[in-house]
Amino acid sequence: MSSPDNTSPVNPIPPVVVALFLVVIGIEAAFSLGARGLIGGPGAVGWRSAAIQSYGFNSDIMKWMLQNGVYPGEHMIRFVSFIFVHGTFTHALFGGAMLLALGKFVGDVFSGWATLLLFLASSVAGAAIFGLVAGGQPWLIGVFPGVYGLIGGFTYLMWLKLGQMGAQQYRAFTLIGFLMGIQLFFGLVFGGNGDWLADVGGFAFGFVLSFFLAPGGWSKIRAKIRHR
């Protein structure tokens, strides 16, 4: 048994979540410092724009691949690489903060590999939905589709908890409803693009995927199938 004196009063953030956060903030730090001429020389001013062009996700590129049946690696990587490119420092910082918060909650229950898979798979699913629906929209960049996938995992855990308590399980969707309401408000007031489609897609995929990734989730599903 471990000594009570050695027990931390706060659960640490899962290492996989910390690693993702450091990658996001590290890349953003390079862009921000380069834009101010502090690193990289004169060419560093255009690092962000070049990264968006090379690693951002675009619906036109996806539709070109589908129409021609050609899937080059330089474009397929965009389904994941767009996560780590942001438009501004504030964009990256806000996304990173949400990644830490939701990643800790989900990572405290899910295993490390399940948390990473939930984040990445939700990002890919969100990008795919964006590519199929949001024709002619600007570049999709940023960590948010993956974060919304983690919100899907959070919602699943709350949905289970409310069910165990005998409470109304629809209350588990309060957070996503609140966030979507904020996005709708800002979209109507300031204008917006179709990136909310990627967020909704990431959330929906993350929620469904959590049935399989949660501890014992696949075993429960298999048992129900056998019972039927």
Rank of each mutant, 00 (worst) to 15 (best):
M1V: 13
P9E: 06
V17C: 07
V18R: 01
V23S: 06
V24R: 01
I25E: 09
E28T: 06
L33Q: 07
L38T: 04
G40H: 11
P42R: 00
G46L: 05
G46N: 12
A51W: 02
I52P: 00
Q53H: 13
Y55H: 12
G56H: 09
G56D: 04
G56N: 08
N58L: 06
S59K: 09
S59V: 00
D60K: 08
I61Y: 11
K63W: 03
K63E: 04
W64Y: 12
M65S: 04
Q67T: 12
G69R: 10
G69Q: 07
Y71Q: 07
Y71F: 15
H75W: 15
M76S: 13
I77M: 14
S81M: 10
F82L: 13
I83H: 05
I83S: 08
F84I: 10
H86M: 02
G87F: 04
G87A: 11
T88N: 07
T90Y: 10
T90N: 11
F94S: 06
A101I: 15
L102T: 06
G103T: 07
V106P: 03
D108C: 09
D108K: 02
F110G: 00
G112L: 09
L117Q: 07
L118A: 05
L118T: 03
F119G: 00
S122G: 05
S122C: 03
I129W: 02
G131S: 11
A134Y: 08
G135M: 10
G136Q: 02
P138W: 01
L140E: 03
G142R: 02
P145T: 07
Y148R: 05
L150C: 11
I151C: 01
G152C: 04
T155Y: 02
Y156M: 06
L157A: 12
L160T: 14
K161R: 15
G166K: 11
G166V: 11
A167Q: 14
A167P: 04
A172H: 06
L175M: 15
G177T: 01
M180G: 12
G181P: 04
I182Y: 08
Q183F: 03
L184P: 03
L188N: 06
L197P: 00
A198K: 06
V200Q: 01
G201Y: 08
G202W: 01
G206W: 10
V208G: 09
L209C: 10
A214T: 14
G216Q: 13
S219E: 14
S219Q: 15
I221S: 10
I225W: 13
R226P: 00
R226T: 14
